[in-house]
Each structure stands twice: as C-alpha cells, then as structure tokens.
Design a protein around this nucleic acid. Structure first.
Lengths: 158, 158
DNA sequence: GTCGCTGCAAAGTCTTTGCAGAGAG
DNA sequence: CTCTCTGCAAAGACTTTGCAGCGAC
C-alpha cells in the first residue's frame, strides 16, 4: 500500500482518521474495504487539486501501476464517497465533474478561466448572508457552492 | 411566427429589444436570422424556468410542431447565445446544463433538492464581498455563480 | 446566386451497467 | 464459504459533427 508519510506527523494522523471513518462507514453498510477503495481515498487525500474521475484514474495508474484499477471502479467509488459525504463534487462551466475531499472546512472556489487553476477561499460574511437569505425564505439549506470565474494574478502578468 | 403578446405592453417591448439586439449581433457576425433562432430565443424568453437543451427542444416541438426543429440546432443555437452572453448556462449537481436568459440582472440560485425548483435571488452584500475577495487576491473577476441547495418551504410542509 | 443554416444520422464524450471471476470477511 | 467488488466491454446518456439540401440576404 502506498502511504506518503510513515512518520507520525499531523498529516498522517488526519489521514488515519479519515481512513478509519471510511472503514467504519463501509462496515456499517456491509461493504468491503478493498485495496482499490483505499488507493482512491488516499490519492484524493494526497492531491491538492480538484480531480476529475479520469484525472484520478490516471494518477492512480501512475502511482500504483501494478493494480490495474478500472475507470468504472473509480466512478463507482466516487459515487459511494459522494453519497457518504466524504467527497464533494463540483461541476463547473465546461463539462465533467471534479471531486474534492469534503471533510475540510467549507469553502468556495475561484476559477481561473485561462489556466484552469482553482483557488479555495472562505468568507464568513458570505456564509452569514447565505443563512440570512435562506431563513428569510423558509428554505432549509443543506449545502451551497459558489464559484467566481476570472483571470488569476499569474495569468494577468503573462 | 409565434408571438405571445400582440398588444404593446412592457413585456413585449422588452422582448422586442432582446430580439433586436440578437438581430444586430447576428448581422455584425455575418450570421443569419432564421426562424429556428427566433423560436429558440422566444421560447427561452417566455419560459420562467431554467431549461435543459432537451426540455427546450420539447417545448418548441409542442408550441411549433410544424417547424421540425432538430435537437442539434437547439444545441448549436444555445452555444451561440452563450458565447454572445445572451444566455447563461448553469450546471448543477446532477447532470446536464440548464440555460437561462442572461440579460437579466445578475442573480444567484436556490435549488430545492426535492422538487428541483430553482429560485433566484440577489444579495448586494454578497456581491460586495465577492469584489473585495477578488481584489485582495489580484484576481480579475469576469463572472460568478452561487447555488444554495436545500429544501424549499413547500417541500418541507409536504 | 452565395454562403450560412438546418435536419438527419453518425460519431464523440463521459458515465453507468451486466457479467463472470477474484477477493474480503 | 458467501456475497460484494472488480475489470472488462458493452450499453447509455448527452452533445457535437459531417453532409447534402434549404433558405436568408
């Protein structure tokens, strides 16, 4: 099994927790903990980027070439993880969903339309306003997402 | 040509403007003003809902059955309208894009995960914060979108 | 008349599904 | 052992494209 950190630092602890939660979740639903599922979770964890199913599949093939993981398994596992709220999917303008671990603090996205880079941010004032708006309309908010599109600092100077 | 209003009220005026803008846009780009393009624009205008390409196609077939509009034309026209910023596409969780006229004031969306209803809203405080955030990061904002998911008032009582 | 547009059907993407064998518990 | 997972390939959903005839200008 690939594991990025073998020394016991914070990052490893965080991953161990995530992994344990995932194992419990599987057990609770009579599902099995397989190598493929672990590799997928770990790859998502170790990637700073927002991955498409295909991108994730490629990454896994590079990192663990012996395990011939099928794209179908990637899709199936992502659906499972999304249902379980372990990951969140984002569907931006163009096409195809991207996935990210959802365990992190809630955040929104800045998307550069030139280089495609995604930057995350959190703004408490916006979060507050969202609650105010839904309260006013009698709407029970379960989730929300916000994307700002434009040109990032780097792409402006190039 | 179908035309919902023949009397000269505000709504008709608004549509006439939209139509004229569209015609100018076509002329400027050496494109042709066709019946199909008018019907598509008009159907979008007269629909309060956010339409999928397929939904739009169905609506048109119902309303103008003699004109055998092909789904390909709907897709092609929507792309054209989107490029020209006449319509905006929204791609929410599930799949498939939905389109709405983009000429209206900028607004965000509340999406009921039970009945699928989409409610629009505008919040100036949020708009202000978005500008503040992008300014701070040196990001040039071109557009943004926000969706809040949850359960609408009606679905809560049912 | 010219040149763009349209409908049709075929081809592409991206995603899901059926199935038989592999593997977790 | 049982019953879920997996990889593969086939099938689906949605969208785009090639083409020959049609129609706007």
């Amino acid at each position: 099994m690939p594991r990025v950190n073998t020394n016991f630092n914070d990052r490893t602890v965080e991953y161990e927790q995530l992994l344990n939660n995932f194992k419990q979740l599987l057990k609770k639903n009579n599902l099995k903990f397989t190598i493929q599922r672990e590799v997928i979770l770990e790859t998502l964890y170790n990637s700073d980027e927002h991955l498409t199913p295909e991108g994730l599949h490629h990454l896994i093939q590079e990192k663990v070439p012996d395990l011939k993981t099928g794209i179908a398994t990637v899709y199936r596992t992502l659906s499972l993880l999304e249902e379980s709220n372990v990951v969140t999917s984002l569907s931006f303008g163009a096409q195809g969903k991207k996935y990210e671990l959802g365990a992190k603090e809630h955040h929104d996205h800045l998307i550069c339309t030139i280089c495609g880079q995604i930057t995350e941010f959190v703004d408490n004032e916006i979060e507050r306003r969202q609650h105010a708006i839904t309260d006013e309309l009698g709407f029970t908010m379960s989730d929300h997402s916000m994307q700002i599109y434009g040109i990032c600092k780097e792409c402006q100077t190039n």
